[in-house]
Amino acid sequence: MSDAAKAEYWKANIRLVIGCLVVWFIVSYGCGILLAEQLNSIRLGGYQLGFWFAQQGSIYTFVVLIFFYAWRMNQLDRKFNVFEE
């Protein structure tokens, strides 16, 4: 891998990480803590929405985020020819 390709690969990785961590922040610190009180006026069945994000929703989102990250990184690895069999 050339130095230029390495730099480009790293930049793409950083962009993806930042995108994922923005979502990570919004679901937990945003919906679960800072906005929880406002969201609690919305109901999800018996759950108040802010409470649901804090005790259920953020955890589900974390799981999805990690697999999304792993999937996109595999695509990136293939594109840059560093995919491990």
Binding site: A54, S58, F62
Partner: peptide
């Protein structure tokens, strides 16, 4: 909730 989010969000 701090424990629920804190002890799982670290995995991201």
């Amino acid at each position: 909730s701090v424990y629920l989010m804190g002890w799982t969000g670290g995995y991201c």
